[in-house]
Design a protein around this nucleic acid. Structure first.
Lengths: 251, 251
DNA sequence: TAGAATTCGGCATAAACACGCAAAAACCGG
DNA sequence: CCGGTTTTTGCGTGTTTATGCCGAATTCTA
């Protein structure tokens, strides 16, 4: 049996059962435990599974819900938001996705620049109350609390009738091969539609989310235009993304 | 069962039930209490739960100012909001209009009552984030900042397709002859449509707004059902309103 | 304050792991 | 085809980790 074949089987098994044991796999695949361990370690390094003592678990990047994250101030997000400002020009129509990163961007927007900001996140709308020259369009629908955003057909319909110069999103999980993914099905759908309507999509997020996979794919990596991330991010992942046409902006 | 898997289960259980006992977990997971304790201690060290004698609790930095805000700010609005609760029954679909009074009502809603709340005000939507049994529908559209609400054809259309058991509104101006009126044209229109779709309309406001007139009429007084106001309000105005079929609730 | 439940620390055991080594297989350039 | 290189794999050794058990210390509760 080929190594790659074996690793594929391991991943399938993992997906099927939700967990795999090194010892079981060794017996089942007819190789030594060392070999299985080496396979598991490699798959873990490339972020295709979560290696744990005794076996492996599916990757579930447990992003804490937005509602729980609101309070903490985060200098990294602040910096990425400031870097994102460079893409914005007066008169543009922006979409700000839900997420803390985008909230920082909303707060960082210059108050004297005329802009139209579209968002599904009520919190972001509230942040922009004192930006007198920013027109805010709030996309309504069912309020999906874990992600603090509106989802559903109402919001989707409204987005399909719009067009954005720029679309900004926080980074949940981005993997060179497995694309940009989100934690919840509901938000993944809205995000996908949003990206379709935008001239340019800018993603912001730190190294911890790079090379990871979450539950629902939004779009493949090549559909993204710019990634603003911290300079300490894994070079090989950045390179792989750059090859797919993503402009990397380190801060 | 893998260690990491077990710890994930513990966290899930915790989120679900709000507390876990070491002894129960040991029996349930088929491991010794020592093992469970070690798991709990580790999860506690990494700040994923709050370790307590006998088990663990979720660590929720739960909105500490919640109670304070209700007590201190505006006792009048608080009282009227509490009086309004009497009209609400489990399972109802409510419309909460924009305005501080309605925000108080949102905060005062019981957390364990299943409800659907529809609102045009993003701030109210955010207040309801921690009410797990309350489904929130946010009506989108252009965000009209002076009134902190969404207006426009989008919101109006959505409202026309809905039906509310109860509609709550703060009181801008109410005059027995000249009706219920609002400051801005945009909001008056939305409010009128809203009242049309509601079985019952409840208005909350203190004496200062009674007997006054603002710029844009919403509906005549007879279209209102309940007025919750303070007991010191002008008796002649209240009487005139009562004659038009408005139930007066003094607090 | 006494008794019960819980926790802590040390210890033993078995499983899982890392590391180096060597054999076998696959690969590669000429 | 052939010599050299790389990759893969399995094995042995020593280390680390996970777990359960036990007694002592601590904390809760009535």
């Amino acid at each position: 049996m080929l190594q790659a074949e074996r690793q594929t089987l391991i991943l399938e098994q993992l997906k099927l059962k939700g967990r795999v044991y090194a010892a079981d796999l060794a017996a089942q695949l007819g190789v030594s435990e060392d070999t299985v361990r080496r396979d598991l370690n490699r798959l873990g390094e490339t972020k295709l599974l979560r290696r744990v003592h005794g076996g492996a678990l599916p990757l579930q990047l447990d992003v804490p819900d937005y509602a729980d994250r609101l309070e903490s101030r985060n200098p990294g997000k602040q910096k990425r938001a400031e870097a994102a400002l460079a893409f914005i020009e007066p008169g543009m129509t922006l979409l700000l996705d839900s997420g803390e990163t985008c909230r920082y961007l909303a707060m960082a927007l210059p108050r004297d620049m005329p802009l139209t900001v579209v968002t599904t996140c009520p919190l972001i709308a509230c942040e922009l109350v004192h930006h007198d020259r920013v027109e805010v369009i709030l996309l309504g629908g069912r309020f999906f609390k874990p992600a603090l955003r509106c989802v559903g057909s109402g919001a989707a319909e409204m987005i399909r009738r719009m067009h954005f110069d720029l679309c900004f999103m926080g980074l949940c999980a981005l993997h060179p091969q497995r694309g940009f993914s989100a934690k919840y099905y509901e938000e993944a759908e809205i995000m996908r539609i949003t990206i379709e309507q935008a001239d340019k999509t800018v993603i912001m997020g730190d190294r911890d989310h790079l090379g990871t996979v979450s539950h629902h794919q939004v779009v493949p990596a090549r559909d993204l235009d710019v990634l603003i991330t911290d300079s300490g991010a894994d070079a090989s992942v950045l390179e792989a993304l750059a090859e797919q046409g993503v402009e990397i902006v380190p801060v």
